[in-house]
Design a protein around this nucleic acid. Structure first.
Lengths: 258, 258
DNA sequence: AAGTTACGTGTCAATACGACACATTATTAT
DNA sequence: ATAATAATGTGTCGTATTGACACGTAACTT
């Protein structure tokens, strides 16, 4: 399906703890939208057989955002991903139940246990990506990187279920203040797709006719001549965001209650 | 003016870096509302003669929020302060220009420079307090702790002006989602006071009659029989928040555009 | 070719909103 | 004392927005 298949796994880097700030990690909730469902990108840990959020550590000369972009590039192949911090997770107990550390131990690899055995604060970020453009890529501690539904019941390590849930809640609260549609949908999309995205994030149904009236009112969408064919039933028109007008409208927030 | 004056400075603790997580600090933007103005609590550094936000470090068995409550208690005398994280400040350069470190050096006191010379990420939190209840108290590195206007032009160290500005912006965005009026105002307050608070946070004037109609619509205020006397002109009624109904209304956000 | 289902567009009553008028009252000025 | 001043309490009115829906249309299925 994707154009490139040639890339090998040679790019997976060995782990060297000495280059990172200790006590601090970051975890990314990477959202995608596919088949009218919200997805999150998860790593399957080699030894624990549990799932974890893509994450990592901060190098000595990096900002938090630069570290996250570096990590996201490795996991998705994408640059300049839309990214927002949303919360620091700081419960001292979260480190003590960290099965990822057990995973590291079980791996038998020469990792710096002085680094891993310490307590970690984890900075939670969420990322919004175009599902179709992502090439999921595992890291040193995982054997698979794959999309899962937001409400998947695969086992998640430590507090990663909580982190996902709080990221989702943040998305809901920021829906009128961040360019969420623009970042999660492909360039061209239909009104039903956009509405379904809103419904998924908000967790409730919206009247399709009123939704269309409200969203068009902001003048942030350009209606294209084309229609989306191939679906069952009447072909919907395609739209695309006007990024300038979208950003401008978001400054004061889309004032609607959906 | 305040009832208690007996407390001495004996409670100021010496500084011992070994009990703290390194690389991580926290800075609190403590908001108060007085004379119809938003205030922030600032520390005057003994040697640098600059101002800094109240802040500190995280002990090994504390959550971030517990650390912040401990620090806020020392600076204000208050327990259980309303507190929200809003951003991690992670620019590597912020540590290199940290005049607070110079302050520590100038102090000639025996502080652990291995601790202070490292890079710090700072977690920004904002706090909302009842101005009248606060007893500003300096710490080990400061000689004064005092209220300043939000837009004060006293010199602020490193990125603390930026942190204050971003806290203010966060307050603006969260006005419909957090119990900001409840936490910043005294128990009983007048409608003009509440409206002025909103105007100050939003940075624009609001029509007093429309404001009253909208805020009363949510049924989160209880109108008292009493009026506030002593001011010039007609005495306004006193109101108080109904915490239960306020919290309930905030769940979906106050839907108004002010 | 008919059936099914989703999409495109429009209507309408109820409500909410912005802008404003007027009466009231506590203090200040004369 | 009395009038002037100024801020508050309360209400109105035309307009815009909203929620709830009806009806026609088009693409695929049978």
């Amino acid at each position: 399906m994707h154009a490139e298949k040639t890339k090998t796994l040679t790019s997976i880097k060995p782990f060297n703890s000495t280059q990172y700030l200790n006590h601090i990690s970051l975890d990314c909730v990477i959202f995608g939208f596919h088949n009218n469902e919200l997805k999150v990108l998860l790593m399957h840990l080699k030894y624990t057989q549990g799932y974890a959020l893509p994450g990592g550590f901060i190098e000595y000369e990096e900002t938090l955002e630069e570290a996250a972009q570096r990590i996201l590039k490795e996991r998705t192949g994408l640059d300049k991903i839309f990214l927002k911090q949303f919360k620091v997770f700081s419960d001292p107990l979260r480190s003590k139940t960290n099965t990822a550390i057990e995973d590291v131990i079980k791996s038998g690899k020469s990792v710096d246990m002085d680094f891993f055995n310490e307590r970690f604060l984890s900075i939670g970020l969420y990322a919004l990506v175009d599902f179709e453009k992502v090439k999921p890529t595992p890291d040193y501690f995982s054997d698979r990187c794959e999309w899962q539904n937001l409400d998947t019941d695969v086992p998640l390590i430590v507090d990663h279920r909580q982190i996902i849930n709080e990221a989702h809640e943040t998305l809901r609260l920021q829906l009128n203040y961040q360019p969420i549609g623009l970042k999660l949908l492909p360039k061209k999309f239909t009104m039903p797709e956009l509405r379904t995205l809103y419904e998924t994030i908000l967790g409730k149904e919206l009247d399709r006719r009123n939704f269309q009236r409200k969203i068009l009112k902001y003048d942030i969408l350009d209606k294209l001549k084309e229609r989306k064919t191939g679906g069952a039933h009447k072909s919907p028109f395609l739209y695309q965001f006007n990024p300038e007008r979208y950003q401008k409208a978001l400054k004061d927030g889309l004032t609607d209650i959906w």
